[in-house]
């Protein structure tokens, strides 16, 4: 069964690029422009999304808010969340980890390690 990854980024070209990269590697993708839209998609179809790959800085609802919302939602809290961001503030990273973030990948990423982090998160929650 193909895994579906929800790609959340407010910047269109990054979003498309990520989706296409992931598609090429055999994942299904869904896209959302911000945390709010992502959360709506998750609630709408909780079983159809296996992993959330989100930017950190976004309008409307940022990555951290999205993470909090996912991890406090009974149906969604098991979904692995990965942040893909230029941010690397240790305090924020620690906070995110304590909230249940699976991995923090900084842009620019290395494709192979990025993909293995996704695969690892998909398999190990």
């Amino acid at each position: 069964m193909e895994k579906t990854i929800l790609v959340v980024d407010d910047f269109g070209s990054i979003r498309n690029f990520l989706c296409s990269t992931l598609n090429k590697r055999g994942y299904n993708t869904l896209a959302a422009e911000n945390g709010k839209e992502a959360l709506e998609k998750l609630i709408e179809n909780p079983s159809g999304i296996n992993l959330v790959l989100s930017d950190f800085n976004m309008p409307k609802m940022d990555g951290m808010e999205l993470l909090k919302n996912i991890k406090s939602h009974t149906e969604l809290k098991e979904k692995p969340v990965i942040f893909l961001t230029t941010e690397s503030d240790p305090k924020t990273m620690r906070e995110a980890k304590e909230l249940g973030l699976s991995a923090w990948v900084t842009k620019p990423y290395k494709l192979l390690s990025f993909l293995s982090q996704i695969e690892y998160a998909l398999n190990n929650g």
Binding site: S13, I14, T86, K107, P108, Y109
Partner: peptide
């Protein structure tokens, strides 16, 4: 701030 941040992230990603 946000625009610069966004462009920075994407620019780094695309090299």
């Amino acid at each position: 701030f946000r625009v610069m941040h966004t462009i920075k992230g994407a620019a780094n990603m695309f090299g």
